[in-house]
Deep mutational scan, measured.
Amino acid sequence: GSLMYASIFGNVSAIIQRLYSGTARYHTQMLRVREFIRFHQIPNPLRQRLEEYFQHAWSYTNGIDMNAVLKGFPECLQADICLHLNRSLLQHCKPFRGATKGCLRALAMKFKTTHAPPGDTLVHAGDLLTALYFISRGSIEILRGDVVVAILGKNDIFGEPLNLYARPGKSNGDVRALTYCDLHKIHRDDLLEVLDMYPEFSDHFWSSLEITFNLRDTNMIPGSPGSTELEGGFSRQRKRKLSFRRRTDKDTEQPGEVSALGPGRAGAGPSSRGRPGGPWGESPSSGPSSPESSEDEGPGRSSSPLRLVPFSSPRPPGEPPGGEPLMEDCEKSSDTCNPLSGAFSGVSNIFSFWGDSRGRQYQELPRCPAPTPSLLNIPLSSPGRRPRGDVESRLDALQRQLNRLETRLSADMATVLQLLQRQMTLVPPAYSAVTTPGPGPTSTSPLLPVSPLPTLTLDSLSQVSQFMACEELPPGAPELPQEGPTRRLSLPGQLGALTSQPLHRHGSDPGS
């Protein structure tokens, strides 16, 4: 009898404990919600809404976190579960008819179910419309201010047509639940991603989709105040780019002037030289400038040598048109050559190039014969006009050509200096018209024969001689050997007369 009593008592207590286990969990969670309300000092109306929603959600799901349970299964099984949970929507909604099984599984994985109690606001006026909503159960109302403009029910759709707008718009009203509602919502990016994977279904979906109420604000059109608020930074940046392009296009129409201050000032006329910023005076940081632009901040801005204009002085008759350009485009679109090309026009420029290279940067340069637009006047290309890779490749080509020119210049200078040193070592320090008596009659020769300089066969020296023939050397430049009979510069000019005159010897006659 005691054994029977113990078994009955144990079973009854276990049954009672299981009955009250759900209630215990409910009270535990309710205590957490109330502690949250007390800690954050939530006001009474919002506090009442929180408690009511918790009670309804507990009775609806029995305190089970559906998302946590669903995430515990593998992905393939999750797709089947989501397809079952959203079967009513996918079967009865017209846009989803005719979709393949794979497309429906992908869509079912992207849908999220939302449960809303009465009085809950789903979308506020001015919120971004980031999702498309399908009503599965219940009814909602749409308000503009305090005026109800629409009441939607089961199988209705609200949001915005995503295929017509590249960016999400703003809501033009509040969406509030009238009863307990079940909503299926899919985010904008998720829907577009699935439709991109199934393009054959995309056309059918957009053609058959009928949005019951379009929440997009109709005033959000390009150029409206609301649109400016939504895309303020983007609009200002776009206007700045367009104004920069218009100014650079105007600059290219004036090829007669070359400016070292950047493309923003290349198009300024002579009357605007004294102004601080020219056409860019209202925004000094709008356009890029070269490193020399920092010198323009000092006094005497109108007389600054940074602004270059072609000189009108005539060229000498024998002067060549100019050196070879550094870039391939210089032959086609440049009416002034790079300062480095002028360094190779003569030997005198070679000796004085490194010492006063900055001073020569603004000297007169030889002109190319074609009066085409200036290379320095070409505006900086924006990322939309020329690819970045093209600019980098041009810079690399320019750097390689500069290296080759520097190597060639160093070799030419070394060769010229070597020839000058050899000339100085071969010439005796001094010569006299009267020579010392020699031991015999073989001493009648006034000077030792001097062998002429070897013929220069280097390509670089031939180019130097060509430049010497075309360029007029300055007075202080050293002379180079030329073709024809060679003669030492330090010898007297009348050596031929010395050989014809008898030598005057000093000596005593033994017979006297």
Rank of each mutant, 00 (worst) to 15 (best):
P441K: 04
S348C: 06
P439A: 13
V149H: 04
D174A: 07
S352P: 10
M197Y: 10
R144F: 03
P288I: 01
T228S: 06
R358Q: 05
R360Q: 09
D335L: 06
L491G: 07
F311Y: 11
S208G: 10
Q423H: 07
A370T: 10
T336I: 11
T499M: 14
T415F: 04
L395S: 05
L503H: 05
M468D: 15
M468F: 10
H184I: 09
F201R: 02
S303R: 12
V149L: 13
P502G: 11
Y165G: 11
A497E: 10
A497C: 09
K250A: 13
T457L: 08
D335W: 03
V416R: 03
L420A: 06
V258L: 10
F213Q: 03
P452I: 07
L230E: 12
G145V: 03
R307I: 07
P317Q: 15
I142K: 01
I135P: 03
L495R: 10
A414R: 08
R388I: 01
L326N: 05
Q463C: 12
R408Y: 03
S393F: 07
V347N: 05
R188E: 03
G226D: 10
G145C: 04
S293Y: 15
L402A: 05
R137Y: 09
L402F: 10
S290V: 11
S271H: 13
V416A: 07
P383I: 15
L192K: 08
F467D: 09
A266M: 12
P310K: 08
R238W: 13
P387L: 08
P428N: 09
S313P: 15
S341C: 10
Q421W: 04
S207D: 13
R388P: 05
L491I: 11
S303V: 06
A268C: 09
R144Q: 09
F201Q: 05
S348D: 15
G322A: 14
A268P: 09
S224W: 09
P379T: 04
L498H: 15
I211L: 11
P502T: 12
K241E: 11
L242C: 12
L456K: 08
S348K: 13
Q363S: 12
T407W: 05
P161E: 07
K239M: 12
N349V: 02
P222K: 05
I140S: 01
P454S: 09
I151L: 04
P339W: 07
G322D: 07
I186H: 01
S460P: 07
G476V: 13
L398D: 01
S272T: 12
A166E: 11
G440Y: 12
F344P: 08
M220G: 08
E200A: 06
L402S: 05
L409Y: 03
E472P: 13
S227N: 12
L503G: 09
L456N: 09
S460I: 09
Q421R: 08
S352K: 15
T425H: 06
S508M: 09
Q423C: 09
R176I: 08
L458N: 04
S303P: 08
L405P: 01
K170G: 01
K250R: 07
D412F: 03
D127M: 01
S259R: 10
N172C: 12
L326I: 11
F351V: 10
S393D: 04
L417E: 03
A150P: 01
D182S: 10
M413E: 01
P437H: 07
S357G: 08
G496E: 09
V464Q: 12
P475K: 09
F134E: 01
P485R: 07
S352C: 04
G267A: 10
S500P: 11
T425V: 11
S432P: 06
R404N: 01
S382L: 15
L417C: 04
K332P: 08
D174W: 07
G507A: 09
D412N: 07
E160Y: 03
M220I: 06
G323D: 09
A433F: 08
P263D: 13
S290W: 11
C470S: 10
R307S: 10
G264D: 09
F134C: 01
P310E: 08
Y431G: 10
V347W: 13
V347P: 14
P474L: 08
L453V: 11
G440Q: 15
V464K: 07
T336V: 09
L191W: 01
F344I: 11
L456I: 10
T179I: 02
Q418I: 03
P437S: 09
N219P: 15
L164C: 13
Q421G: 10
T455F: 08
D249Q: 06
D203P: 07
E253S: 11
L448M: 13
V175I: 03
L419C: 06
P510W: 15
F351M: 07
M327I: 13
G262R: 11
G169T: 01
A166K: 07
G159I: 01
P305D: 15
G223F: 11
P199F: 01
S345G: 06
P161M: 08
N155Y: 12
R246P: 13
I221A: 11
G511N: 08
I135E: 02
T499P: 08
E392D: 11
P317T: 11
R247A: 10
A469K: 04
A260N: 11
P279R: 15
M468L: 08
G287P: 06
P225R: 09
F467V: 13
P441L: 09
S289P: 15
R360M: 15
D296H: 13
P320D: 08
P161R: 10
G126C: 01
I157G: 02
G322S: 07
A433R: 14
P369D: 10
A131W: 05
A131D: 12
F467G: 10
P325Q: 08
R216K: 04
E141M: 05
L215H: 01
P317E: 13
I221D: 12
P429T: 09
T218G: 08
P478T: 04
P478N: 10
S139F: 09
S136L: 04
P270L: 11
A469R: 11
G159L: 03
P478W: 08
P387M: 11
F351G: 10
P446L: 09
P439D: 08
N214M: 02
A266I: 08
Q482D: 15
G267Q: 13
E160S: 03
E406F: 01
G281T: 08
T425I: 12
T372Q: 10
S312L: 11
P288G: 13
D249M: 06
D156R: 03
S202L: 04
N155T: 08
A433M: 10
L498W: 06
S136P: 02
P481V: 09
L426A: 11
Q418V: 07
F353G: 10
P429V: 12
A166S: 10
L178D: 01
I140L: 10
E297Q: 09
D146C: 03
C470R: 14
P320E: 10
V347A: 10
L498A: 11
Y362L: 10
L261A: 12
T425R: 08
C368K: 03
E471A: 08
L261T: 10
D356M: 15
G173Q: 04
N338E: 15
S348F: 05
P222D: 10
G232F: 10
P474W: 04
S345H: 08
G138I: 01
G287H: 04
G262F: 08
V450G: 07
P373N: 13
N219M: 09
E319T: 14
I211W: 02
S333V: 10
A166Y: 09
V194E: 01
G438I: 07
P299V: 05
G262W: 09
Q401M: 14
P474G: 10
R236K: 06
S302Q: 13
G153E: 07
F244Q: 10
R273T: 04
P317D: 11
E193I: 04
P305Q: 14
S290F: 15
S312A: 13
G476S: 08
S443E: 11
G269W: 05
T372A: 12
L448D: 12
I151S: 04
A433W: 10
S208Q: 10
G438F: 15
T252D: 07
H504D: 10
D412V: 01
P325V: 15
L461R: 10
Q361V: 11
V147P: 02
T218M: 12
G262H: 12
R358G: 12
I186D: 03
S286Q: 15
G346W: 04
T179C: 05
E297K: 05
K185L: 09
K241W: 13
Q463K: 04
P314K: 04
T218P: 12
S171C: 06
L192C: 06
E231M: 10
R216C: 05
P161H: 08
M197S: 09
Q401H: 05
L230H: 13
G145S: 13
E160C: 01
P452N: 08
T179P: 02
V148D: 01
P369K: 09
V427N: 04
P474D: 06
L380R: 13
A497S: 12
N172T: 08
I378W: 04
G126L: 03
G269V: 13
V434Y: 09
A497V: 12
T415K: 04
T336N: 04
K170I: 11
A397I: 10
L191N: 01
V194R: 02
